[in-house]
């Protein structure tokens, strides 16, 4: 069953000269990990905003087409109502704190309190999420006193705790170091394993290749390529849109230039090493 469906979506921001999204048709299956990649200005963030209903409900502008979440058109639902099914995480962890809570515990409970979840259930779910996100150690700390990586995990946990079916995440690791990036991706993967549908905008292609079920390549407001990570990263369209390929794909392509053909499309460096050391590669005469 499709969790998110966009049909003929075209959108222009108020005051903008042309559409930022053009004729977008996209279906994302329930429980799928779908990454959206593309150069700056390709429309990735706007696509996410359309799935969450911020476009056009918050940003206004000219919107055509339909967005369906679990089969239901969100045109008539308020942003608050959509929050029950779709969560959203931004790239800047600082702006994602509610600003009114004194502890990480209260920050996680904030969204559930707004939705009127019974107190006992809130406490149970907060404890569970602290454990899952690996942030139990700072449960009583002020969210604004945490590091960027810790704040981003808190922001993600604060969204995951609401148990929406769809989580839209916009460049969550753009300000993070490699270890924090891995921690955030581990948490996103855990959410997917719980059955959530993940829509992720990300520039770290190694992680996109490793975690995604499907990759959508955006360019000039349109979908330029769509498919498995192996399909998209070996598609010539990826290079023509200035996408930095995952290290393993790039290495494989360079090796091919030197006459070493690696079978398949290894999406991670260990997979590439495995393919090379396993003797499945072919060296041209």
């Amino acid at each position: 069953m499709d969790s998110v469906t966009l049909t003929d979506v075209t959108y222009t921001y108020p005051g903008s000269e042309g559409p930022v999204l053009r004729d977008i048709n996209l279906s994302i299956r329930a429980g799928e990990f779908c990454s959206i990649i593309g150069p700056n200005g390709a429309g990735k963030t706007t696509l996410c905003a359309a799935i969450r209903g911020f476009v056009p409900k918050f940003y206004k502008g000219d919107f055509e087409g339909t967005v369906r979440i679990k089969g239901e058109d969100i045109a008539d639902a308020s942003i608050g109502e959509i929050a029950r099914d779709v969560g959203f995480v931004f790239q800047n962890p600082f702006t994602q704190m509610s600003g009114i809570t004194a502890s990480v515990y209260d920050e996680l409970a904030f969204g559930l309190r707004n939705l009127g979840v019974p107190p006992a259930q809130i406490r149970e779910r907060v404890e569970g999420m602290l454990e899952l996100a690996g942030i139990t150690a700072f449960r009583d700390r002020d969210p604004f006193q945490l590091s960027g990586g810790q704040q981003q995990r808190v922001a993600l946990a604060a969204m995951l705790i609401m148990e929406q079916d769809v989580i839209v995440i916009d460049e969550p690791t753009s300000q993070l170091d490699p270890q924090s990036t891995d921690d955030v991706f581990a948490l996103i993967e855990a959410a997917q394993k719980q059955g959530r549908t993940i829509v992720l905008v990300e520039h770290k292609m190694g992680h996109v290749a490793r975690y995604s079920d499907r990759v959508v390549l955006m360019g000039e407001g349109r979908i330029q390529a769509i498919g498995t990570p192996a399909d998209v990263f070996t598609d010539p369209a990826a290079a023509s849109h200035g996408i930095t390929l995952p290290e393993s794909i790039e290495l494989a392509q360079r090796l091919a230039g030197h006459g070493v053909t690696v079978p398949g499309s290894p999406l991670t460096v260990p997979a590439l090493i495995g393919a090379l050391s396993g003797g499945s590669h072919h060296v041209a005469d």
Partner: peptide, 8 residues
């Protein structure tokens, strides 16, 4: 938008 996402 964060507040909206968290059901405010």
């Amino acid at each position: 938008l964060t507040l909206e996402s968290r059901g405010f």
